[in-house]
Design a protein around this nucleic acid. Structure first.
Lengths: 159, 159
DNA sequence: AGTATTGAGGACTCTTTTATCCTAAATTAA
DNA sequence: TTAATTTAGGATAAAAGAGTCCTCAATACT
């Protein structure tokens, strides 16, 4: 199990890329998808969820695309996760027990409840501008690796 | 997204129940499944993974079933998770980036790396005996709720 | 007006997860 | 030996997640 769904990860990578480009204009989803090495159709669906939540503005036609509805600095990572995966991860019982709470805690309840707060805070603290800066400082790739890239990567690792 | 898969949650509930019963004898999977309100066939498959990992001994025929291969106190929660969901959650990059690491960290890398250790420690610290004791102290239910149970539960909540 | 571009959204496919069902093999007890 | 019980494991089905493809609607530019 991963922490986040693939859709959510793709969405996060897309908004970080958008924050890096820091464009006041609309940016085409096709371009973003190419940069990230993702299917443009699939990414369109994912970004639609962010548009519907009001995190992005979208615009059709030539010069159309998507852009942030607020400054990247003000958009927190948790908002992206909430729009795509929902807040279950930060709110539900780790053992998935219906009605687990302070009154009737599950065996893991206390420890996990403490932990959830820390996890949530992590996602509430990181904003898109900060994440974008990290990527640039580290000269890092957001791009999804193709099979060829992975072979290349493993070659370099062996050296 | 949940933290753990359903199979993993069911597996955890089953071993906690076993630890509560604290039986030196083999315990039938059918009985465990009935107590937890789960499909016996499905639970059999899940517990088979624990048997294959050497966490449980299994025995066929009348008086057969499963039992712990080591004292419940010595079995850590992370071993159950590792056998069913694997360790991806505790080892992989939150953004699922191939090759994310200290040398080429992803934007979330540092924060998540710190956090993973805490999360892993939580699962490494909890043992089945302790979790079983928690359940008993709190008089808690491990049982999966049926639709009828949920209606009943919500009724009581309103009062 | 016409054409190219781009997001919206529906239909569909593929894969993985979740779940059910059936048969086989091992074991116990009469 | 026979019958009943119980896990092992394969076949299959249902549901959710991931991904593709096609058409429509909005828009910009000529």
């Amino acid at each position: 199990m991963a922490l986040l769904s693939k859709s959510c990860v793709y969405g996060i990578r897309a908004v970080i890329l958008m924050a890096i480009k820091g464009n006041a204009e609309f940016m085409s989803i096709k371009d973003i998808a190419e940069d990230l090495n993702l299917s443009a159709h699939f990414l369109t669906k994912i970004l639609q969820q962010l548009t519907q939540e009001g995190l992005l503005y979208s615009h059709r036609g030539p010069k159309g695309g998507v852009k942030f509805s607020r400054p990247a600095k003000e958009i927190k990572l948790i908002e992206i996760v909430a729009a795509i995966d929902g807040l279950e991860l930060f709110e539900e019982c780790a053992l998935g027990l219906h009605g687990c709470g302070t009154a009737t805690p599950c065996p893991l309840h206390e420890k996990w409840a403490e932990h959830k707060v820390v996890l949530r805070t992590l996602f509430e603290t990181e904003d898109l501008e900060k994440l974008a800066a990290n990527v640039q400082d580290a000269g890092l790739r957001l791009r999804t690796l193709s099979q060829l890239d992975i072979i290349e990567f493993n070659k370099n690792k062996k050296k």
